[in-house]
Design a protein around this nucleic acid. Structure first.
Length: 348
DNA sequence: CGGTGACCTTTCG
DNA sequence: CGAAAGGTCACC
């Protein structure tokens, strides 16, 4: 079977960035082909994605011939939902660039950062794992959750794929101890306890929060063990359609201070400052402020420095090492910033 | 409310 | 060997 495809510019969706910027922790890129592979909720198969200059190509792998009857149109709809393709990202970028000079600078080198519309349960447990943690380890933990408690789907290209576990399974006796042994640390308890809370709620309780107003959904999420303001905002933004939810983590905290000169506390991120930072970006970017936040967050990320440089080289045909003129200016701006920011400024 | 320290584990400087 | 990694919670 050949690949299906739909037309898509990288300014609407840049797969490499969107699937690896810390929204979802389950996509893996094949080193050889460059294609992305994962499972999506609701379909017991492996999704394969890759991108050309003007299209996204997709293909499904199913356990048996019989079950591979997920038709092209159905698959297409699943992808359109997952990638929020009803939202015109190019228009939003234009809007945000006009509203904010800093965004204009950052986004010029990092287009196509699109918010995914993920499964709420998967997003909830994934981001409980995210506290005080790094993306690589989070990805490993999410993988362990699936392998240990998910449903086996199939093996493809030497890798075994599993569904994300349902809360009922994670609520079972002994899960906390097991997860601790698997290296989840203190998050083991949060996962187990939150699973028990979910299991006690009416079916579909979490998914229903998609219909609730942002503040209400956020408040409900805060009742779950291991879910604070930041994790709740991640769940709101990435799975509950709250496009103006702004997760304020250490990165956004630094960005707010460094690039937006917000008066933030030095030591700890208090509730007051947390809300002020979010409100600042909401006022600046409007209805889809959470999406804009994701661009700034990704642009600040070290792992995307090289990808940006490559892109810059190709598009402007200019070398990046030749700007000693700006060096002093860069140093002067470095009062609070780190080397990552210095590198970033150097290629402007 | 604001501030503080503990919490698991791994990696990085 | 301490700090940081997409924080949260309990307690003062």
């Amino acid at each position: 079977m050949s690949w299906w495809q739909f037309p898509c510019r990288k300014t609407q969706l840049w797969l490499d960035v969107t699937l690896s910027c810390g929204q979802s922790f389950r996509w893996r890129q094949d080193a050889g082909s460059g294609e992305w592979r994962s499972c999506l909720p609701g379909s017991l198969c492996v999704w394969r994605l890759k991108q050309t200059v003007d299209a996204v190509l997709y293909k499904l792998e199913s356990p048996s011939e019989k079950e591979s009857i997920l038709l092209e149109e159905s698959a297409r709809q699943t992808l359109f939902d997952y990638f929020n393709f009803d939202v015109d990202l190019e228009s939003l970028y234009t809007e945000w660039q006009r509203a904010d000079r800093n965004f204009a600078e950052q986004s010029a080198r990092l287009k196509g950062v699109r918010m995914l519309r993920q499964d709420p349960t998967e997003t909830l447990f994934s981001f409980i794992c995210s506290s005080n943690n790094n993306i690589e380890r989070i990805s490993g933990m999410v993988e362990k959750l699936c392998v240990t408690y998910g449903e086996y789907i199939l093996e493809f290209d030497g890798r075994q794929y599993y569904t994300f576990p349902v809360p009922h399974v994670l609520a079972a006796e002994g899960v906390e101890d097991k997860l601790r042994k698997l290296g989840f640390g203190y998050r083991a308890k949060y996962i187990h306890q939150t699973a028990k809370v979910l299991a006690s709620k009416p079916d579909g309780w979490l998914d229903e929060l998609r219909k609730a107003p942002y503040r209400e959904a956020h408040a409900e999420l805060l009742t779950l063990p291991g879910v604070g303001a930041k994790v709740a905002d991640c769940i709101c933004l990435m799975s509950l359609d709250k496009m103006d939810a702004i997760p304020v983590d250490t990165h956004m905290w630094q960005i707010a201070a460094r690039d937006y000169k917000l008066k933030v506390t030095n030591k700890s991120l208090t509730t007051k400052v947390y809300n002020e930072i979010g409100d600042h970006f909401r006022k600046l970017f409007g209805q889809y402020a959470g999406w804009a936040h994701s661009v700034l967050f990704s642009a600040d990320f070290k792992k995307f420095q090289s990808i940006q440089v490559e892109r810059n080289k190709i598009e402007s045909n200019v070398h990046v090492e030749d700007s000693p003129v700006h060096q002093e200016e860069v140093e002067a701006n470095l009062v609070t910033s780190k080397s990552a920011a210095a590198k970033r400024k150097r290629i402007i």
